[in-house]
Each structure stands twice: as structure tokens, then as C-alpha cells.
């Protein structure tokens, strides 16, 4: 296993970079999108509510692979999209639907008194949401967001299906050239742990830190 790692170290390192990059982009973008659609679900506009609901239900209930394939094989005919981009976009949309639900649940569990207090104090509804409600909602949502983020990193292996150059793709190729699938997949498994374990630890740390601030 060690010799397999050292002789393919460069490939694994590049792949690790792609997986990390895709995960970071998708994490940030899906958090922003997810929060946006959580907000669209609670604003007093029927149209916005319906749009948000439709978005969430579509992307939450379709397999990630199909979303990715759609961008890789169909959307690319209109705008050129390579495997890495298609995979990262799919990952973002898919995860954002779950994050929207998580953030919405967080918003709902912040008491109505917080909104009334802020509105009676003269804050606009946007100020109330941004300064009072969302920070508290995120604090509540952190454990569940942590799960979403870890799933996101693992789901980034979907890039392999569209030749996205990620860890899984490289594992497939190394396995194919060395005929040692077993160790190839174990090596990339460990690379995934290098991302997910610190991420998990950081989310736990954030959770306890924010709890202290309550």
C-alpha cells in the first residue's frame, strides 16, 4: 500500500486538491444558496414561497448523479461545462436543497418573540432577519449543517463519474493501471478522512463555542 501511494503520490495529491477545491466551492455556494432559499420560504410572498418549495423538492428528491449528468451531458450543449464544473455545480445545487431545509428549521425554532421584539424596536424585516434571526438560526442548525458538510465532501466523489479529476476518479485510474483496486480505494478513503475529520472537529468546536455565548 505504501509503495502504491509513493509511486502515485503526485496523482493522488492533485486529485486531493481537486476534491478539496470542489468541496470548498460547493460548501460556500450551497450555504449561500441554501440560506437564500430558506429565506424565500418564509417571506410573505406566495410566489417566492412556491419557487423556493419547488427548487428544494426538485433538487432534494433527484439522485445527485442525475443532476451532475444533466449538466455534463445536456447543459454543456448550451454552455461548455467540463466534468469538474458540472460535478461541482450538481453538488452545490443538491446540497443547497438540504441546507435550505436545515436553515429553515433553524429559523422556525427561533421564537416569534425575537422577531416581535426587533420589529417593535424599529428594525426592518430584513434587518431583523439578518442581525437577530439568522445568527440564532445558524447556531441551532450547526450540528445538522455539520452533517450536511461531511456528506458534501463524501458526495464529491460523484465527480469521478464525469471524469472530474477528483480522488475517486484517480483511484479508479490507479486501480486500473496497477490492478490493485483494494489499496487504491483505501488510500483515497484515508484522503477523504483527512478532509472530513478536521471538518467534523471544527463544526463540534463551533458548536461548543457558540453554546458558550448563549
Amino acid at each position: 500500500m505504501i509503495s502504491l501511494l509513493t509511486s502515485n503520490f503526485h496523482s493522488f495529491l492533485v486529485a486531493f486538491g481537486y476534491t478539496l477545491l470542489s468541496s470548498i466551492i460547493a460548501l460556500i455556494a450551497s450555504t449561500v444558496l441554501g440560506t437564500l432559499f430558506a429565506i424565500l420560504q418564509i417571506v410573505p410572498s406566495k410566489t417566492a414561497n412556491v419557487i423556493a418549495r419547488a427548487y428544494i423538492e426538485v433538487f432534494r428528491n433527484i439522485p445527485l448523479l442525475i443532476i451532475v449528468m444533466f449538466f455534463y451531458l445536456v447543459v454543456t450543449k448550451i454552455v461548455k461545462i467540463g466534468g469538474f464544473t458540472a460535478g461541482t455545480i450538481g453538488l452545490t445545487l443538491y446540497t443547497s436543497a438540504f441546507i435550505a431545509e436545515t436553515v429553515r428549521a433553524g429559523i422556525n425554532s427561533v421564537g416569534i418573540g425575537q422577531t416581535e421584539g426587533a420589529r417593535a424596536n424599529g428594525l426592518s424585516s430584513w434587518q431583523t432577519l439578518r442581525i437577530i434571526i439568522l445568527p440564532q438560526a445558524f447556531k441551532i442548525a450547526i450540528p445538522s449543517l455539520g452533517n450536511q458538510f461531511i456528506n458534501l465532501v463524501k458526495n464529491s466523489s460523484i465527480l469521478a463519474f464525469v471524469a472530474g479529476g477528483d480522488l475517486m476518479y484517480t483511484a479508479n485510474n490507479v486501480a486500473a493501471t496497477t490492478f490493485d483496486s483494494f489499496n487504491s480505494y483505501i488510500i483515497v478513503g484515508i484522503f477523504y478522512l483527512i478532509i472530513t475529520l478536521p471538518l467534523n472537529y471544527y463544526m463540534k468546536f463551533l458548536e461548543t463555542k457558540l453554546k458558550g455565548m448563549a
Binding site: 418573540g113 421584539g117 437577530i132 440564532q136 447556531k139 455565548m213
Partner: peptide, 8 residues
Amino acid sequence: HFNLYNNK
């Protein structure tokens, strides 16, 4: 019930 901002 006061409704103070719990995060401030």
C-alpha cells in the same frame, strides 16, 4: 416575555 435579543 421581554424579547431581548438573545444573541446580543
